[in-house]
Simulated scan of single mutants.
Amino acid sequence: MRSIFYIFFFCLGFIGYSQELNCSLVVNAQQTGNENQSIFKTLEKQLTEFINNSKWTSRSVAPQERIDCSMVITITDYSGENFQGTIQVQSSRPVFGSTFNTPVYNFNDRDFSFRYLEFQNLIFNPTQYESNLVSVLAFHVYMVLGLDADTFAKQGGDAYFKQAQTIVNYSQQENYKGWKLEDGLQSRFALIDNLLSPTFSAYREVMYSYHRLGLDVMSENAKRGKEEIASSLKLFEAMNSRRPNSFLLRTFFDAKSDEIEQIFSDGPNVNIASVKETLQSVAPMHSGKWANIKF
């Protein structure tokens, strides 16, 4: 009997401290012409284990609560221990009362260079720089965590975004691209700076109202859910008038444009004309999809 209790409490502890992410990670080295080299398979395996087996927060997470995400690292060039490439990061979360997963984060990080020695230890320190490889991965992990939390609670991602900002600050020391103001309007620096800026506060309001008050309601009341989604998108209008075609707006609609087209092309009627006017105003780059909304 005693051994049964030990097993029971061991299992409870394992479940209570499960890792936060369920990440599919791929290293694509085709562009190098040497994709079959063992170092790329080793890198893929190590990074997959690093992301999925690390404990990124102090929260207790049940296995079914792990966030689904993916990272595709494309190596474009390498020499010795020096690698150059890009990383595409995407995440999603389930919609209440359905089998549907909604996209949350979609970011193509083009400034990704790092040093890597096969089988080297990968260690994340929340307050101290370890390597650019670790910093870039950890930054995107906290973006995934923060945006996911924002879809469930107002300002729910604050702690994760502040950690992402800390990573940006201490990663500037090695002069890798993507961490500084001068690295452009689509850098990691710009992304977290915009997210935490009052100028773009509507973005995080929309993340909450669109998902929690809109999508999550649709299984019980489809019309009310669609109306809430339409109202939430209108919050972008004032933000867009201050900063037209902002980086954050583009990241939102890169993730959501297909979903929005589908939502407003089916189900209960809402004011489609008003919705299309809003979408055309704040996301003209997807005008072809908005033109397909003819419900």
Rank of each mutant, 00 (worst) to 15 (best):
Y17L: 13
Q19D: 01
Q19I: 00
L21V: 00
N22D: 12
C23P: 02
S24F: 07
L25H: 11
V26S: 09
V27T: 03
N28S: 09
Q30P: 01
G33N: 09
G33V: 06
N36Y: 12
N36C: 01
N36T: 00
Q37M: 14
S38W: 10
I39N: 04
T42E: 15
T42F: 08
L43N: 04
L43F: 08
K45L: 11
K45R: 13
Q46G: 06
Q46R: 09
T48I: 00
E49I: 07
E49P: 00
N53C: 02
N53Q: 11
S54K: 03
S54P: 03
S54D: 06
S54L: 01
T57D: 05
T57H: 02
T57V: 05
S58F: 07
S58G: 08
R59D: 15
A62K: 10
A62M: 08
A62C: 06
A62D: 10
P63T: 01
E65D: 15
E65N: 14
E65R: 10
R66I: 04
D68V: 06
C69A: 13
S70Y: 02
M71Y: 07
V72M: 09
V72I: 15
I73S: 02
I75G: 11
T76M: 03
D77W: 00
Y78D: 03
S79K: 11
S79Q: 13
G80S: 12
E81H: 13
N82F: 12
N82M: 08
F83M: 11
F83C: 11
F83A: 10
Q84S: 14
G85F: 07
G85S: 08
G85D: 08
T86N: 08
I87E: 03
V89W: 04
